[in-house]
């Protein structure tokens, strides 16, 4: 809370997320999953809604990093307790 923006308003972690609304984000999730999509909404639990989302599942028994399974969803709600981090991508 020690950082402030130009207007002197305190800056919080969720301010970063707010700037990503209607932008592409990469969300890292529990269970070796990642979800890329356009951020349409979020709340303080990291619940969020992504549009045109692509999910990558790195769920291969032996070679974890080889080709992930890809799943697409036009509109998806992601429950916050699975979220590890939110990464702005451009």
């Amino acid at each position: 809370m020690s950082n402030t923006d130009v207007d002197g308003n305190p800056q919080e972690p969720f301010d970063l997320v707010r700037y990503q609304l209607d932008e592409l984000v990469l969300v890292k999730l529990r269970g070796a999953r990642e979800m890329k999509g356009r951020l349409q909404g979020y709340d303080s639990h990291c619940n969020m809604v992504l549009s045109d989302a692509v999910e990558y599942i790195y769920d291969l028994g032996e070679e974890v990093n080889s080709n992930p399974t890809v799943k697409k969803s036009e509109m998806v709600f992601v429950r916050g307790d699975s979220v590890i981090l939110i990464n702005p991508i451009n």
Binding site: L29, R30, G31, A32, Y58, V64, N65, S82, I84
Partner: peptide, 15 residues
């Protein structure tokens, strides 16, 4: 086993 393997690659297992 899987958790360990995933963790070494920077992933968190959900189990």
């Amino acid at each position: 086993l899987r958790s360990k393997k995933l963790l070494s690659q920077g992933f968190v297992n959900d189990f």
